[in-house]
Design a protein around this nucleic acid. Structure first.
Lengths: 157, 157
DNA sequence: TTGCCCTTCATGCAAACGCATAGACTTGGC
DNA sequence: GCCAAGTCTATGCGTTTGCATGAAGGGCAA
């Protein structure tokens, strides 16, 4: 393998390792109320987009199989945290949107979690590194060029 | 929240997003033979460390609950891919090591996967960015300062 | 309109997961 | 040496996941 390829693998392994370490750290925190992190992820994703999201769209953002996501949406809807409406423009589709309760819960969890993220990440990185990481990670995410606050209002994560 | 905190959250969300996107891309690839990515991750981690690993040690590297990991080790041992020996120095512990078959399988999968990683990551990032990402990610992983090839021989991921 | 194929989401079912906890062993104080 | 507390791994059990597939609607050609 080329030198560049080796470097890429090293960087990717670092990213994986960072992801695992921080996810564990966040998971242990007492901020999730009665949600799992995956459930919170769904609520957070819905909160980022103003308009109702299709399940397929949601699926593009969440690391979960489509059937698993479909059932998770079931459970969240049953708990009154989100609403599924038939899509008027496409009879197959379903439009998902947060209920008021869902939005409140996302916000109250998000506040604590965002603080934890800020603490954990700023503890290890300088401002320059934070900026570099943001640019690089969003490039890898396929949405290069997004700036700090272009995802609607405050990062509520 | 402080500006630095917001930046940290933005960077973290980018990292999450990059992780999700690339994991999906890698998962779809036809490189995993009869293993799941999580099972491969276990074999890969074992391959990185020369000496047998304790389950607890392995657990620190893998994003999986301890009971789930324990059972996954069961299955991998049953399939002849790794071996569990009682730890002579600690009667509670178990020492895990790859069998020849396990090592072979890890290598044959690893070759294809590493190539895929190299392609996907180098496609998006310049050499400088690769180097920055490696430094930053390994800082976040809590093992700052590791260089390209200090994890024994080739990155076989 | 009809027929065919594609897309979107849901469901059946076996496998795998997380939580709580048990069992086995180690460690340290008395 | 012995007991209490702590650590390490395994097991019971209900829940969630992924894979394969089904059901329902959309899109387009004939």
């Amino acid at each position: 393998m080329s030198d560049r390829g080796r470097l890429a693998n090293h960087a990717w392994e670092g990213l994986l390792s960072a992801h695992a370490r921080l996810m564990k750290q966040f998971a242990e925190a007492d901020t999730w109320q009665d949600l799992s992190m995956r459930e919170y992820d769904v609520l957070y994703t819905l909160s980022k987009y103003r308009e109702p999201l299709r399940i397929g769209e949601l699926h593009r953002h969440v690391l979960l199989s489509q059937p698993a996501l479909s059932r998770m949406v079931d459970r969240l809807a049953e708990r009154g945290l989100l609403e599924r409406c038939p899509d008027p423009a496409d009879g197959r589709g379903v439009r998902l949107s947060l209920t008021a309760a869902g939005r409140d819960k996302q916000r109250s969890i998000g506040r604590g979690h965002a603080a934890h993220v800020a603490r954990a990440v700023t503890a290890e990185l300088s401002r320059d590194e934070l900026e570099q990481l943001a640019v690089i990670a969003w490039k890898l995410a396929g949405r290069a060029g997004t700036t700090t606050d272009d995802d609607q209002k405050e990062p509520q994560q």
